[in-house]
Design a protein around this nucleic acid. Sequence first.
DNA 1: ACGACCTTAACGGTGCGTTAAAGTTT
DNA 2: CAAACTTTAACGCACCGTTAAGGTCG
Lengths: 265, 265
Amino acid sequence: MAAGGKQVEARYRIGQFAKLAGVTAKTLRFYDEIGLFRPSVIDPLTRYRFYQLEQLQELASVLALKDLGLSLTNIRRAIGGVAASERRYALLSELKTATERSLRRAAGSLELINAALEDLRGIRPTVPVVLKHQAAVSVASVRTTVASYVEIETIGRDLRAALPSTAVGDRCGALWHRCEPSPVLEGEAFISVTGRVPARQLYDLKQLPAATLACAYCLPDDVSAASAYHAVDNWITMRGYRLAGPKREIYLDRMLEIQFPVLPG
Amino acid sequence: MAAGGKQVEARYRIGQFAKLAGVTAKTLRFYDEIGLFRPSVIDPLTRYRFYQLEQLQELASVLALKDLGLSLTNIRRAIGGVAASERRYALLSELKTATERSLRRAAGSLELINAALEDLRGIRPTVPVVLKHQAAVSVASVRTTVASYVEIETIGRDLRAALPSTAVGDRCGALWHRCEPSPVLEGEAFISVTGRVPARQLYDLKQLPAATLACAYCLPDDVSAASAYHAVDNWITMRGYRLAGPKREIYLDRMLEIQFPVLPG
DNA sequence: ACGACCTTAACGGTGCGTTAAAGTTT
DNA sequence: CAAACTTTAACGCACCGTTAAGGTCG
């Protein structure tokens, strides 16, 4: 019985203190565990935690910062030790920019969700579009103007025929340097290559640059492709990206992948 | 050696397929594990996962929904099975309201952070304020008009003296029915009681109603209390709460807790 | 036979809520 | 003695990134 002689400061067990402070006992245990807010005394025998009334103010500071959205880790940095006030200012500034970002993201996201809902109401929902990063890849290519889109396929077949079969990689397709609104179509058939490839006048050897790509898949017919192009175009516009290079078409097995290189802004 | 007779659909191992799709192999494994997006074939011997090109479109749908902010669990609900389109609409609508909420929260939060930053620039930072819920509590009380704030303490002492000491609980304080801007001060000293208490004309027996309270702690002097009152007042205004009942003062050991009952709106 | 690829398993990060099993206080 | 309280321990949530240890493919 620790009921010593003089009047000892009132101690509260965890449940009592929790009720006073308006948090759960579990929360207090957790805060103790992570070193954010500790009991003033721990009975070494029973390991019971004991708190004092003065600590209510300390806990209130913690909870007020938490209410602003600061993480527990950062709250710990913001309250203890020397120069806590400077750190607190820095952490709140950081939190401010983070909150501004998430505000903008939420606003943008909301627009996109609304667009998606509109889209779902339509008869024929839009093709899904995804963003991905693509490393640079070595290719052999032939660039030329063509009279129609399909013509580039012939060029591609000729290109493949001109290459040693050991050197051709797994991806082939076309770049479109000028298309659609332009009166002339200028395309570039390409095939990825590996290792050393003999240089010839028939084709160029170059790198497709690394890029961030907005992509959609479609069947290899004009109607499907047109709606995929439209979907990607719309997608880019809605998110405020801008086109950053020639559009790419990748020939997959029985599918076409439409890729628009994009940059933010 | 599964190289059977006829031309089999091209199969891609997880790494290849991941590269094509622009995600990591780990992500594909995870999606498989949670049943969101599964390989078309799993070798029963080696457990290698194999994917087909057609699945790129399916994965794109998943990623597009994820990009909108839908959780993986909800994406699974949105794509598989019957009536997927209705569910998709419902889930997106739900996501929309959630996003609107978080948008409002971020906007409000930003204001509060700015206010906190302003506050930190000041000489004397504001007292922290916290929100908490309080259950109803039985009290004995004496309500009266007083000439000054301190007078209520005398009333409180008299009240305590009038009660059997076995019945008094652990909380005492005062309610302020009219104060500050009002020309007359009307307070109500109270002490929490337990079990049965003899009814007398000296005091009322009643319940402090359950409430949501905006609280601050201060020293029991007029200057400290004034700044705490001001802090809570300001806090309530900034968050768009409104006062919902008499203000409460709780007498703690060597501290005072200021509580304003509030309601949203 | 070596390197690149595949497998499962498990921890980490955020902030606690929620059992569960067992000891303590009143 | 029973009720109410305390303790530690552990899982759960969301979404994978990141080792780690050990088989498989070209």
